[in-house]
Design a protein around this nucleic acid. Structure first.
Length: 479
RNA sequence: UCCUCCUUAGCUCAGUUGGUUAGAGCACAUGACUGUUAAUCAUGGGGUCCUUGGUUCAAGCCCAAGAGGGGGAGCCA
């Protein structure tokens, strides 16, 4: 007999038929006469109830059917006599495929703290919360490809190992095969990377953007979606040392087209999650509502998770320039009452508290901030005609902060070289990048979107470590 | 990296002014119960009070250092 997944069994399409069910036991309860076993196989947040009559199953037969065990059940799929579910399986046979000693199995049939579950990340997939989170993550990942594929973008695999350390996006992890206990030295006493695997110093990538631009100069529209590494000593709920980033790059796009695409993209993939994972999102929403009960009134959410997502999908993102953002902040009561810890002034980067005010208090929706001062942004961003600002854009999301960072790129050779010099990058460092400006260069734009931050936004999870299977953070690379 | 809080049973947590045998709920085991929904009820077993050092007649509680974790900040996606 072919195994049917719980998700399909729960539709009732096979009611009255003999079915084969395989999965993991969530709970077992009952009495001398009848036992109920809740089985989950990850195909849905919902469990399927297996009914085991004592006529067919003695104590011995069910002894090893404990929370966490994997079992195979055959029996008839019938309408449930009980209240909590429409269908259940009246068991004929139950085989324990893998035992789980209840004395030592770390997961119990009760709510565990997220911090505790993080310590047993190898088992946390088996909980309702993480089951829901990673089903949503899967939908979002697939939707990324679907969105770009439908629009004729080419999916480009940019390198993970890179010799370019000139991107300025952050501290990098070194990649080497040199014997660290016996490093080869040059005559000047420096480490001799000529002896290293690649014959030069190499690192893990902090961004695929520069390579992505090269591809966009041939395919028009490309995107990357891959792992990215930052060796920053960042200990926050929104930073990882290893994370996944999506970086589209479009030839012949200006800043506005860039922002339009980013907004459309975010809405599209959220819509996919609402459509495909409604019950997961409902469950995560209930979790948050439960959490909210222990918070003071002021900090509680006005909308449920599902309402929030629908609001984002159905409303335009706010668009303002950096200069307008500064004006809003300066004119706010919050500023006048000196409630900001950091001062607000044109030319200074927006602090977390400022971004939060704009997004969560003032606009109460995602905000696209454009045209930042050139001195606080990367060298490759296109200089505006005012000579002071660059064609940059950040998308700020409620509760998450910066979710997208992008820009129109500087396509003018001389201006680009000048800005590179300003940050200490030589023409030799990036000769291949500069070649795109020498040979058939054109206006183009792109952005980077932190995938985990998007998963956080859609699932409502507060800590980025809970939306990636095995988080890598400073002092933590377990599993 | 900085600020701040936390670490007591398998899990979540209480533990008074430093005082004799460290508690609760859940989990687990045993028993009861004819359809349960984190089933319920009864009984029972279960402790390196994070580690090291110190103060004291006496430390889970006070002091110091260290480890791990949470929240906030910076860096960013």
């Amino acid at each position: 007999m072919q195994r049917t997944k719980v998700k399909d069994l729960l539709t009732g399409a096979e009611a009255g038929k003999e079915v084969l069910l395989k999965g993991w036991v969530r709970t077992k309860r009952g009495n001398k006469f009848v036992n109920f076993i809740a089985v989950n196989d990850g195909s849905t947040i919902h469990n399927l109830q297996v009914v085991a009559d004592s006529e067919h199953f003695g104590e011995e037969a069910l002894k090893d059917v404990t929370t966490g065990a994997s079992i195979a059940v055959t029996g008839e799929l019938v309408a449930s006599q009980g209240k909590g579910q429409a269908y259940e399986v009246q068991a004929k046979t139950i085989e324990v495929l893998g035992k789980a000693d209840p004395e030592t199995y770390p997961l119990q049939k009760k709510a565990h703290s997220l911090e505790y579950l993080r310590e047993i990340a190898h088992l946390r997939f088996r909980t309702n919360t993480f089951g829901a989170v990673f089903r949503v993550r899967n939908t979002l990942a697939f939707a990324v490809h679907k969105f770009f594929n439908e629009r004729g973008f080419v999916y480009m695999h940019t390198p993970i190992v890179t010799a370019s350390d000139a991107e300025g996006a952050g501290e990098m992890f070194k990649v080497t095969t040199l014997d660290l206990d016996n490093l080869p030295r040059t005559e000047e006493g420096q480490i001799d990377f000529k002896e290293d695997f690649f014959g030069r110093a190499t690192n893990l990538t902090v961004s695929g953007q520069l390579e992505g631009e090269l591809a966009a100069m041939a395919f028009s529209d490309i995107y990357t979606f891959g792992p990215t590494f930052r060796a920053e000593n960042s200990n926050t709920a929104r930073h990882l040392a290893e994370f996944w980033m999506i970086e589209p790059e479009m030839a012949f796009h200006d800043l506005k087209m860039n922002a339009d695409l980013a907004e459309e993209f975010i809405k599209y993939i959220i819509r996919e999650a609402i459509e495909k994972n409604a019950d997961d999102i409902e469950f995560l929403g209930q979790r948050l509502a439960e959490e909210d009960k222990s918070k003071p009134q002021q900090e509680r959410q006005e909308m449920t998770l599902m309402e929030k997502l629908e609001f984002v999908v159905n409303n335009s993102f706010e668009r303002i320039t950096y200069t307008e953002a500064i004006d809003i902040l300066l004119n706010s009561n919050h500023y006048k009452k000196k409630k900001f810890q950091y001062d607000v002034a044109w030319g200074v980067d927006l602090q977390s508290e400022h971004e939060r005010y704009l997004v969560e208090k003032h606009f109460k929706k995602p905000v696209i901030v454009t045209d930042y001062p050139k001195d606080i942004k990367a060298f490759y961003m296109r200089l505006n005609d005012d000579g002071k600002t660059v064609a940059a854009m950040d998308i700020l999301a409620p509760g998450i902060g910066e979710i997208v960072g992008g820009s129109q790129r500087e396509e003018r050779y001389e201006l680009l070289v000048e800005r590179m010099k300003g940050v200490g990058i030589t023409e030799e460092d990036l000769w291949w990048y500069l070649d795109t400006r020498r040979f058939g260069g054109c206006p183009h734009a792109g952005f980077g979107l932190g995938f985990e931050r998007l998963v956080q936004f859609v699932t409502g999870m507060g800590n980025i470590r809970d939306v990636i299977p095995f988080p890598r953070t400073p002092k933590n690379a377990e599993f």
